[in-house]
């Protein structure tokens, strides 16, 4: 029975993960290395890569602040509406990214709620950089908070209380006590958040307008190339994103390892074995 299950699992992984991975790289290099290099250094591709990095550079820090703040107030304080806030944090996961994109168009688009006001003040959100950043930030907002809430719940408030009694202020308590205790969980959340920010397609596709060299991100660029039957080029750009995913995976594994080690410390700190004579 055990072997059957293992075989099924491995076969599933091979067909859904490993094979596509191999395919991406074999297709990318199908016309030789020079075509590959050209595809990823072509101005439109470079501009898409730059835009993708820029979006991640904004969305990830914003979500770090939001995630830590949300997790902090949910786990360290009691207030009315706490459960509602926890549910709201999950909303971007529950809603299809395309719908999220549509919502932003409905709010900030030319015919949207704030459309005319934005037009009057000459602010462009939809089909421009601010829209892409907004949509990406929204989609990736749960990652950090989701990662930190259970961790901080488990750690409790004892250490923070101890710090305050010893005379520490709020910021001192956060930077000297809370942050060191959550750093691995935070990093893990940030890695996932970053991966999604760079890879997000649905919501970004709706708000971006696919303007080459301006509002095209890497995932959108892959799609455009593919639709133009430039398969080798399309897969070449896709392989860059795939490499990014592999790096993310490696980092994630490393962080998980550190996290387990500090969780081990936590368990040790909570139990009080009399291993040594007191």
């Amino acid at each position: 029975m055990r072997w059957v299950l293992i075989t099924v699992a491995l076969a599933f992984l091979a067909f859904t993960l490993l094979l596509p991975l191999v395919l991406v790289f074999s297709q990318a290099f199908s016309k030789g290395f020079s075509v590959y290099w050209q595809a990823i250094t072509e101005p439109d591709a470079l501009s898409a890569a730059k835009l993708t990095l820029l979006i991640a550079a904004v969305a990830v820090p914003v979500n770090m602040v939001f995630g830590v703040a949300a997790a902090w107030c949910i786990t360290k304080f009691d207030f009315p509406g706490k459960n509602l806030l926890i549910t709201l944090i999950d909303l971007p996961f529950a809603v299809s990214p395309v719908i999220s994109g549509m919502i932003f168009v409905l709010l900030y688009g030319a015919h949207g709620w704030f459309g005319s006001w934005l037009m009057e003040h000459d602010i462009k959100i939809i089909f421009a950089l601010p829209g892409i950043i907004l949509a990406t930030t929204f989609i990736t907002s749960p990652f950090v908070a989701r990662e930190l809430i259970p961790l901080m719940q488990e750690q409790g408030t004892d250490e923070e209380e101890a710090a305050i009694v010893l005379g520490a202020g709020g910021w001192q308590t956060f930077f000297r006590v809370t942050l060191p205790n959550i750093k691995w969980g935070l990093l893990y959340g940030l890695i996932l958040c970053n991966a999604r920010a760079m890879g997000e397609f649905g919501a970004v596709s709706v708000v971006s307008g696919h303007i080459r060299g301006q509002t095209n991100t890497l995932p959108l660029h892959v799609e455009i190339l593919y639709n133009e039957y430039a398969f080798a080029a399309s897969f070449a750009v896709a392989s860059v994103l795939t490499l990014l995913a592999l790096v993310t995976l490696a980092l994630k594994t490393l962080v998980e390892w550190y996290q387990r080690r500090s969780a081990h410390d936590l368990a040790e700190a909570k139990s009080t074995p009399e291993r040594m004579a007191a």
Binding site: D158, E159, E161, A162, A163, I164, V165, L166, G167, A168, G169, R176, V177, P180, N181, S262, D265, L266, A269, K270, T272
Partner: peptide, 29 residues
């Protein structure tokens, strides 16, 4: 406020700062 009361509090489960050495724990205040 707590931090101005000049009390020492020993918690039931000690609440030591687990990422700090014994020395740094005592030095924290």
């Amino acid at each position: 406020p707590v931090r101005e009361r000049q009390v020492g509090f020993v918690f039931q489960h000690y609440a030591l700062f687990r990422h700090m050495s014994v020395f740094e724990n005592v030095a924290f205040g």
